[in-house]
């Protein structure tokens, strides 16, 4: 894909010889203003790529942390228009950090697929991860997204066997997201040995970077996973940091974006340590 921020960023990190830190935050959590502040703070804290969750009323693949984040965002009035606007505002100060929107299909479908892709491209969005659009539904959004110059990033899972893997990799670009457990977001930490074996299995079939997520909460895990994966995704832990910083009335407080940044700095030290080890 031409002028892809995602490809550029992974190219730079390859030269640096370290994995990427991919941070997930829920768009509009806990409120639109605080969410934008959190977003703006991520690159300086060490996030290499940013995933923004599009809140949905029925997040079937998410655990309690991300469910609650979505509910907070919706309650504070977040919708697709605001999520896109948030990215536009972020882009006025940062035109390099790749941004991937993650979520479920229905809010996009209701916004209108073509209108969504036009607006997403114009807002500066680089990729999409849509949990409930498997390769069997590629004609709906995946192929149109590619035509708009937006990466469609697929999830591969422990149940994606060798026979199915090529189908999952087909039409995937940017990177492959390996879901390291069978389960929902924020569940048990993955077994590093199993993850390493799965990443090498996927890498035999693709040259794309492989990101690993689900269950990563701290710098040490980020380092361990980062020694075999090209990117480490952290979501529930960051969303929990938001939840833990709210005022008594459940609003975003002065400490909210700093709480997220602090955790991101810690995680960033983990992926940078992974670099030192692999370089040694």
């Amino acid at each position: 894909m031409k002028n892809s921020r995602i490809d550029t960023r992974f190219g730079e990190l390859k030269k640096e010889g370290r994995p990427a830190l991919v941070t997930f935050v829920m768009g509009g959590d806990p409120d639109p203003e605080t969410s934008l502040e959190i977003l703006k703070g991520l690159p300086a804290a060490g996030a290499d790529l940013i995933e923004i969750g599009m809140p949905f009323s029925d997040p079937m693949a998410d655990g309690p942390a991300i469910q609650l984040a979505g509910q907070r965002a919706l309650k504070a009035g977040q919708d697709m228009i605001k999520t896109l606007q948030m990215v536009r505002e972020f882009r006025t100060g940062d035109n390099e950090t790749p941004i991937v929107l993650m979520g479920y299909y229905n809010p996009i479908y209701i916004y209108g697929n073509e209108r969504f892709l036009d607006d997403a491209k114009e807002a500066g969005i680089d990729g999409l991860i849509i949990v409930d659009l498997p390769p069997e539904a590629d004609d709906e959004l995946c192929k149109p997204a590619m035509a708009h110059g937006i990466h469609f990033i697929r999830l591969a899972t422990p149940t994606t066997d060798d026979a199915r893997l090529p189908r999952v990799l087909d039409n995937t670009s940017g990177f492959v997201y390996y879901v390291s457990i069978t389960g929902i977001t924020g569940a048990a930490a993955p077994d590093p040995a199993k993850v390493a074996a799965s990443v090498s299995r996927i890498k035999q079939s693709t040259d794309l970077p492989v990101a690993v997520g689900f269950g990563v909460t701290n710098a040490e895990q980020a380092q361990t996973i980062g020694e075999t994966a090209d990117a480490v995704v952290v979501g529930s832990a960051l969303v929990n940091a938001v939840a833990g910083s709210l005022t008594e009335s459940g609003k975003g407080g002065p400490k909210t974006s700093e709480a997220v940044s602090a955790l991101v700095r810690d995680l960033a030290s983990g992926v940078r340590a992974a670099k030192r080890k692999s370089a040694a």
């Binding site: 079937m60 693949a61 299909y105 949990v131 409930d132 659009l133 498997p134 069997e136 539904a137 697929r154 999830l155 591969a156 899972t157 422990p158 149940t159 994606t160 066997d161 199915r164 999952v168 879901v179 069978t182 389960g183």
Partner: peptide, 20 residues
């Protein structure tokens, strides 16, 4: 064969469930 009744139906599930 893809589970559609006109435009309705289909298989909109997470990849973990798709093989199942």
């Amino acid at each position: 064969p893809e589970g559609h009744f006109g435009i309705f139906g289909g298989r909109y599930v997470a990849e973990t469930l798709m093989p199942l």
